[in-house]
Amino acid sequence: MASGNKTTLLFYPSTTNVSAKIHPVVLFNICDSFVRRPDQAERVIGTLLGSVSADGIVEIKNSYAVPHNESADQVALDIDYHHTMYLSHQKVNPKEVIVGWYSTGSGVSGGSQLIHEFYSREVSNPVHLTVDTGFTNGEASLKCYVSFNLSLGDRQLAAQFQEIPLDLRMIEAERVGFDILKTTVVDKLPNDLEGMEATMKRLLALIDDVYNYVDGVVEGRLIPDNNIGRFISNTLSSLPKISPATFDKVFNDRIQDNYALVYLSSLARTQLSIAEKLNTAAQVL
């Protein structure tokens, strides 16, 4: 369906260079509504909210499921539901507007065209996101499409869904940490120091890797790669050059500052516990 075969029939609008970016909460929401789908429903569909920037990047920030009924060649969407939900979402964040719709399952199916037409009336040029919850090809595939009308003269022939690039980097999920998002149960949230420890361990491992690589190249065990070499020298040169004396001074100053802060807060805490004892002591009066 979505292919790049060019015939004279095709008319590509100027916005072919659109791409989409997805917020992890959208994926979570879609999966959750799929897990909670009604009995016997094949797939869930819903509305995508977000924003479109001037350079054609569609940012999908939020979503909600819309109940629907599907039979052989008919799709009934609960339009009232869609509208009330949209109004509710607008109250919270007026900046998030409809950018398209999603459906679970792999690829575009027959009924999709009808739904896409409905969303085209809500917003011009909606995007269509498919999430393959069945893992049909044995992999998690998320795809994003825009649709074009193919027409010959005045006659509508068909609609073509063209795939657009989807950015799956999900910085937000990285901030939370994949460790707690990818397992089914996490017993305890990592606290500050544990997180720090994990990060330092990773940094150490990375430095070790670099050492091993460099040693390997020097000893002739590994084939040298100029690109990697350049990366390493770039990284090394990005360290600011400070004379040991200045560094020691800066370092010691910072350490002293921190000690002062720790001292201050411990003092305050001690005061609190003294005050606590005094306040609740039996009144002498």
Partner: peptide, 25 residues
């Protein structure tokens, strides 16, 4: 405690970037 459905867990494991350094680091 944080829990996720098996579906989410599968998706996140698939989509986790290979790069050893992530934003929170």
């Amino acid at each position: 405690k944080v829990s996720n459905s098996a579906l989410i867990s599968a998706f996140m494991t698939e989509l986790e970037p290979d790069s050893p350094v992530v934003q929170c680091d």
